[in-house]
Design a binder for these strands. Structure first.
Lengths: 120, 120
DNA sequence: ACCTCATTTGAATACTTGCTCAAATATAAT
DNA sequence: ATTATATTTGAGCAAGTATTCAAATGAGGT
């Protein structure tokens, strides 16, 4: 709970009716948490690159690490985050694990954001 | 620069040809930085709420703070981040500053992500 | 059984970030 | 000018996070 003392303008700009109705509206939007977690997982360059690569072809952990110039461990940690959000799936073949995108929706999000960035 | 010693599987899973071509491909994608910064700014619940609210109506800093139950200062700091990425614009009227969305593309991104979240 | 190798996992560290507090601007009213 | 108010800004703190290191797991090969 943040405390606001005289930090708040209670007389002039505080539009109580509007503020109250907006408060109710915002509280109703439980999706905000879901939204932020999906954007959050996409906010890291390493994970973005992984998603980009995996959207094209299946790759093993080691090759991913080599392409990204990261340690195997770092890649594995990030893959776990992507797995937790069901963005990637994997199949194991012998000792190795091959990862690929779980579904194409992330790819679409990636694409719309890309066109947004390119227009700027 | 990360150092990889024997962490790397150089004999079996390292597919040099593929890795090299993917490396070139990834380096070519300078957009990754832009993508991550747009996703990053959207990865915070406070900023998401602000964007949602501002996409509907123009609001002053103080009312935003009241709706979000945050200090004026916190809101102002976040607004600056949104301004830096040109996601919001503002006009000042007297002592007050009224903010609104700069363009609708973010709104679209917001919407596609929302439908993604809701499908899960 | 043993050894090797690909991957995973937990702990520790260094870096990032959202908020608060205090001070600074800016604009309007007296 | 002085005062009051709406917003901005910079510094500092606390919480979160990406990476590394070391150890654990798991699956084959000998």
């Amino acid at each position: 709970m943040p405390k606001r003392k005289k930090d708040v303008c209670e007389i002039f700009c505080y539009n109580k009716k509007l503020v109250d109705s907006l408060k109710r509206e915002i509280i109703g939007r439980g999706e905000i948490a879901g939204l932020s977690s999906i954007f959050d997982v996409l906010s890291d360059q390493t994970r973005l690159k992984m998603i980009y690569l995996l959207s094209k072809r299946e790759l093993c952990v080691c090759d991913l690490a080599n392409v990204l110039n990261l340690s195997i461990s770092a890649v594995s940690h990030q893959l776990r985050r992507l797995r937790d959000l069901r963005l990637v799936k994997f199949r194991s073949e012998g000792k190795m694990a091959f990862y690929s995108l779980e579904d194409s929706m992330v790819k679409d999000l990636f694409k719309s954001a890309l066109s947004y960035v390119q227009k700027k």
